[in-house]
């Protein structure tokens, strides 16, 4: 059971205070793919970073398996995997060395690491270049190494930030297959992306962030009835035109309106 509870974060910039995330709460079920969408500056990235523990929230917390991020940040970190287009790889290490390193860091036993790497290698088709230095890999190959790294500790929650950025059709397909795999394994996935058509295909439920608040939430059909628009692109365009208004639905942590 994965949820965010009233996350808030302010930043100071040029002497002004900017509210980046304002009372954002949502929940994601195991086996569900949740799309966290919104225009630039809405607060998606900050929300994700708060769940990951990269930024400390001003108030609120994330909860996974009854561990809270304000009390046991390390337990939360152990249960989250992170895939991002902007994440790099260690140039001088091989994929195997990177995977071994992160497996170690996430607490896997030495005898578990080898089989896990072998399995991941086959799963993501990176076995052929597992021992090559990452500097020599192509973008697609590096992305697959990153996908493997995110999965090495088998987290119940996977956060994906623009995972298909910079990838071609083949590469994007790999990501979609990966997401299906995660769903099959009963993992919860939070997906942040600007690719609204992709999101519509892949996600089960959506949360629309706008100007630091969660404005709409629900399945595609629910959103359609909430906003009166047929698809996500039109919903976005409408959203940007409207002046900012408080969230109309009280969202409880269970995800039901």
């Amino acid at each position: 059971m994965i949820s965010a509870h009233s996350l808030c974060k302010q930043f100071q910039s040029d002497g002004r205070v900017i509210q980046a995330v304002d009372q954002v709460s949502f929940a994601v079920q195991p086996g569900e793919v949740y799309g966290l969408l919104g225009p630039n500056g809405a607060g998606k990235t900050t929300t994700m970073r708060m769940i990951l523990g990269l930024i400390k929230p001003d108030s609120g917390y994330a909860e996974i398996d009854r561990f809270r991020s304000d009390r046991d940040p390390d337990e939360i970190k152990r249960r989250v995997g992170f895939v991002s287009a902007s994440a790099g790889v260690y140039q001088w290490l091989s994929a195997r060395e990177i995977l071994t390193f992160f497996a170690d860091v996430y607490g896997l036993e030495p005898d578990e690491i080898e089989p896990r790497i072998a399995a991941l290698g086959e799963l993501l088709s990176i076995s052929p270049f597992l021992d090559q230095r990452c500097a020599t890999l192509s973008t697609g190959q590096r992305q697959r190494v990153n996908l493997a790294r995110a999965l090495v500790h088998d987290p119940p929650l996977m956060i994906m930030d623009e995972p298909t950025l910079g990838l071609d059709v083949v590469g994007s397909q790999v990501v979609f297959d990966y997401i299906s795999l995660l769903r099959q394994q009963g993992k919860a996935v939070i997906l942040c992306t600007h690719q609204l058509e992709q999101a519509q295909r892949v996600c089960d439920r959506f949360g629309l962030l706008f100007r630091s608040r969660l404005i709409h939430e629900g399945t595609l059909n629910e959103l359609r009835s909430q906003t009166g628009q047929a698809d996500l692109v039109e919903m976005f365009v409408e959203l940007i035109k409207e002046p900012a208004h408080p969230s109309q639905n009280a969202i409880s942590p269970s995800g039901k309106p």
């Binding site: 990951l52 523990g53 990269l54 390390d74 337990e75 970190k77 152990r78 989250v80 992170f82 991002s84 902007s86 994440a87 790099g88 790889v89 260690y90 140039q91 992160f102 860091v105 996430y106 607490g107 790294r149």
Partner: peptide, 13 residues
């Protein structure tokens, strides 16, 4: 610069 800092800090260590 390499973009590896985030994944490192996100780890429970």
């Amino acid at each position: 610069e390499r973009g590896t800092l985030e994944t490192l800090v996100a780890a429970p260590i």
